[in-house]
Amino acid sequence: MDGAALRLTADTPQEELLKFGRTVIQQEATALTAIAERLDARFCQVLDLIGECRGDVIVTGMGKAGLIGQKIAATFASTGTPSHFLHPAEAIHGDLGRVDAHDVVLAFSQSGETDEIVRLIPSLKALGAQIVAVTANETNTLARSSKFVLPLGPIVEAGENRLAPSTSTAAMLAIGDAIALTCSWRRGFRPEDFAKYHPGGSLGRRLALVDEVMRPLAECRIAKCDQPVRDVFVRACRPGRRTGAIMLVDEQGKLAGLFTDSDLARIFESGKTELLDHPISSVMTTSPKTVTTGVRVQEALAAIAKLKISELPVINDDGQPIGMMDITDLVELAPTASSEEPAAEEPDSPWTVPFPNQNGSST
């Protein structure tokens, strides 16, 4: 990017601004591709070290590298590897008490000569912690003091002046993510494990089990399928906000049918009010769609969206109802039209990257 040829001002045309922004991204992407190809056996040695670690992965870095380190520590923690961030300046003022000989320290520093990091090294080694360096090369102070080094290689920062940490921090982020996510994949970390660390928000609820989110049986309307419609609506009332359907069971307590408020409305609209005194089995939906206990909420939501229904009974292995998934409780989690049936990716798309499964083949 030639600063003289591409000088930006407040009056720079939009096409030039777009060209500059795209060039920044392309420069970083080129560097990441080179780093991916440069990974070697040392990466696997780092994975082994973390896999055998009986303590935590302590991530450290100063300035922009420290901000990347905080994100990587969070990624480790959220994907099943105990981890926290250690600020190098605070470490020598008492925070070293967080580190012991069972820990692995992942240190980020482009130069490997950052004063706060260099001053921290002797203390980490005295505590017996193993150090892994993510740094420019293998000849700087940090690299020489580390058990393993993952070199970034030649890095040219993006932008006009090539001074602000940009390409280097993108590279650190990529390597940190690669370590954390490969550790997670190697360990067999599952969506249900991920849910344990993300219980809040819509993500946590989508990954939760239906048993945790459904309305329990005590809050649902339930009746025998041989009762008259009129009696069912009198006797199956519940305090509070009710579900839009009544679950109907047979003599063995198994779910036999479903009768919704819309079904009741249709009886009145048809003028056949005599049906109110008929057994509800004559007007109920038989063999209703259900979900079994232990299924994740996102699977239940997909079924609700595909079938275009508002209530989904939850049953146990014996076919007995144990609760109800009601769309009014889950509306903020319902899949959007675009997420129900994702468009197929183009075979030659540069974004279609096959990931290996547990037996090593690609998926």
Rank of each mutant, 00 (worst) to 15 (best):
E251D: 15
S339P: 07
G323N: 05
E311S: 12
G204L: 04
E90Y: 07
G97S: 08
T290N: 06
V134K: 00
G51P: 01
K19W: 11
A343P: 02
S310C: 10
A143T: 03
G253N: 10
A136N: 08
I322R: 11
D103F: 01
I72Y: 00
E269K: 12
Q227W: 15
R54S: 13
A89P: 01
P321V: 08
I222E: 03
K272N: 14
Y197P: 00
R242P: 03
E160M: 12
E212M: 08
L127M: 12
E212C: 04
Q130T: 12
D103N: 11
R190C: 07
A126M: 10
A36T: 11
V295F: 03
L258P: 02
N137V: 02
L150N: 00
I92V: 15
I315Q: 03
E15S: 14
G244P: 02
L181K: 01
T141L: 08
V232P: 00
P191R: 04
P151C: 03
V291Q: 00
K306W: 06
I267Y: 08
I117R: 02
P199A: 06
S262A: 15
S362D: 13
R235A: 14
A170T: 13
H87P: 03
A158Y: 00
A36C: 12
A36V: 08
A256D: 10
G257Q: 07
A337V: 12
K224F: 15
G66Q: 05
S78M: 05
P342L: 14
T23W: 09
C225V: 12
G112I: 03
A10S: 13
R241G: 11
G176Q: 01
Q320D: 04
F233M: 13
T260C: 11
H278A: 15
P321A: 09
P199M: 06
S349W: 09
D11Q: 15
Q14G: 06
P165R: 06
Q110Y: 13
V295H: 08
F355W: 13
G112Y: 03
L127E: 04
W185I: 03
I50F: 05
C44S: 13
I222W: 05
A29H: 10
E138W: 00
E90S: 12
P151N: 04
A41N: 12
S146E: 02
L333A: 09
G69M: 02
W351Y: 15
A107Q: 05
T352Y: 13
M247T: 05
P122R: 09
V213N: 04
V118C: 12
H102N: 14
Q110N: 15
L275K: 11
L181P: 02
D277S: 13
D277Y: 10
V105M: 06
P216Q: 06
D11P: 00
L150E: 00
P151D: 03
T12S: 15
F268T: 09
A29V: 10
S338C: 11
R206L: 04
M172S: 04
P228I: 08
S361N: 14
P122W: 08
R238Y: 06
G244Y: 05
L124G: 02
G360P: 07
L217T: 03
P13F: 10
D177A: 03
S270Y: 07
T141V: 07
P13K: 11
L96I: 05
